[in-house]
């Protein structure tokens, strides 16, 4: 495992070299949250100087990777130079980041929460600014009938979409849309409920509960 100074900018932000702009922004927000001042998760691990240094490294990484021209230069540098050299900043000066570093922890986390929670179509009214995140916001990630949840179960059972399509006799495109929660690509109403139930039954999950949960969340 490499030390922070040895990591290239992609590794600092925990993104793939092929990451899209949105993924890099999300990773940057997460890194800002990780190295923010006066946080209990870092106080026993890093002293103030180490934390500041890490934050600066994160800022450098984002400054380069968020700018397409600088990112291209950096990518070619990575391709040619051994990892140690590429880890040094491409330009000497760290520019100010696109997202202000002085952003409050609360504001930062609200924006981060938007990235981290799975997008649910037809969701309830958004939480008003300044309001405490309600309990229902936390539940988004745990929605029983949510496509992501079902997909996780399917993958962990080692079942492919083809196998599911075979056994449920449902068009594979529909199953894919179900897992990705693209409900506008799916027939609505009772056929959708039937599909959910069939999917659930083939994974030996309780179909009634799953359909009921879906109806509640999408009414």
């Amino acid at each position: 495992m490499k030390k922070l100074e040895e990591l290239n900018y992609y590794e600092v932000l925990n993104v793939e070299p092929s990451a899209a702009r949105e993924q890099i922004e999300k990773a940057y927000l997460l890194a800002l949250a990780t190295f923010r001042p006066d946080w209990f998760a870092t106080y026993s691990l890093l002293n103030e100087e180490e934390r500041e240094k890490s934050l600066r490294r994160v800022e450098q990484a984002f400054a380069v990777l968020s700018d397409p021209a600088r990112r291209k230069t950096y990518d070619s540098l990575l391709g040619q130079a051994p990892p140690g050299e590429a880890a040094a900043p491409a330009s000497g000066v760290a520019e100010s980041s696109v997202l202000p570093a002085s952003d409050s922890a609360g504001g930062l986390l609200k924006r981060l929460g938007g990235y981290l929670r799975p997008k649910v179509r037809q969701q309830a009214e958004p939480v008003a600014k300044g309001q405490e995140p309600s309990h229902s916001n936390l539940s988004d990630g745990y929605m029983l009938s949510g496509g992501q949840y079902l997909r996780t179960i399917r993958l962990s059972r080692g079942l492919s979409l083809e196998a599911m399509a075979d056994s449920t006799r449902i068009n594979i495109g529909y199953l894919r849309a179900l897992e990705e929660e693209q409900y506008d690509r799916l027939p609505s109403g009772s056929y959708l409920h039937y599909m959910l139930a069939a999917y659930a039954k083939s994974l030996k999950l309780d179909a009634d509960w799953i359909v009921k949960d879906f109806k509640e969340k999408h009414s």
């Binding site: 997460l30 949250a33 990780t34 998760a41 986390l109 609200k110 981060l112 929460g113 981290l116 995140p133 916001n137 936390l138 990630g141």
Partner: peptide
């Protein structure tokens, strides 16, 4: 919500 982010951090 902050607590959920904790794990990744």
């Amino acid at each position: 919500d902050d607590d959920v982010v904790l794990g990744r951090c």
